[in-house]
């Protein structure tokens, strides 16, 4: 268990006995089976596991996009299961950043408008200094007025990273952020994410399939059949690959 003291200083998010069951009776699927994990501030965590092991489900539940069947998720001191739909939405807007695999941007908004979208939704004026830092970190200064359709896949994903960073969320969740990119662009994005953790003290939780991507993280959690089966610190691509093979993916 986590006491309030630790919360304020080191832990950004936590899952406690998180259980998610889809369907009922014969068709029942236990997607998450009493998963408990903590995500420290300023830490870059990768979640890995074979297909169908519950990675996305865990991430969706951590991010307040889906609700657990039992157990709880805590973000910044809030127990998500206690929040109403509207408060969950506001929590996502104000405290969480998202990077999806694809379709991260609103096609009718410019790159800059996409980056500031969560803050605009909250009617909050972005901190210009921070915004400049983020934009320069991802290197988008000369593309700000472009629409997503005028950007390459890698640039689009960089905008998504910038959006996730811009509102200084408690935590950023990324679901296979490099899944749709070629390896060079993917590496670029991962480098940005790494930088965000190192230089901007961000907290990131990333679901991935790719041992190389996991190699950029500080810690890897391994899921299998909805259970947390292992944990690895200071991972390298090779070590992760071995582990995955052991898990039979």
């Amino acid at each position: 268990m986590t006491d309030t003291q630790t919360w304020s200083t080191t832990i950004a998010a936590a899952a406690i006995n998180a259980t998610k069951i889809y369907g009922s009776g014969d068709t029942q699927v236990v997607a998450l089976d009493a998963v408990s994990a903590e995500f420290n501030k300023g830490q870059f965590t990768a979640i890995m596991g074979p297909s169908g092991s519950g990675k996305s489900t865990l991430m969706h539940c951590l991010a307040g996009l889906d609700l657990l069947t039992s157990g709880s998720v805590l973000i910044g001191g809030d127990d998500l299961s206690q929040l109403k739909e509207r408060d969950l939405t506001l929590l996502r807007r104000d405290k969480i950043g998202f990077i999806f695999q694809a379709f991260n941007l609103i096609p009718t908004l410019s790159a800059l408008e996409n980056i500031t979208l969560p803050m605009d939704l909250g009617g909050i004026k972005p901190d210009q200094g921070w915004l400049d830092t983020v934009i320069d970190t991802v290197g988008l200064r000369d593309r700000l007025s472009h629409r997503p359709s005028e950007l390459s896949g890698g640039q689009q994903q960089r905008v998504a990273v910038a959006r996730a960073l811009a509102s200084r969320p408690q935590i950023i969740f990324a679901d296979e952020p490099t899944g749709n990119l070629d390896s060079r662009t993917g590496t670029e994005i991962l480098t940005f994410m790494r930088k965000a953790v190192d230089e901007l003290r961000q907290t990131i939780v990333m679901v991935t399939h790719d041992p190389n991507a996991a190699g950029y993280s500080d810690r890897v959690l391994f899921l299998a059949d909805g259970r947390l089966v292992d944990e690895m610190f200071e991972p390298t691509a090779a070590k992760v690959l071995d582990k995955m093979k052991a898990l039979g993916d």
Binding site: L65, R86, T89, R93, I96, F98, F103, I106, P107, L117
Partner: peptide
Amino acid sequence: TRELGLLRAVGMTRSQ
């Protein structure tokens, strides 16, 4: 649909 889902995910409320 997907665009609406994205907007909701990043924090657009129903009334917005």
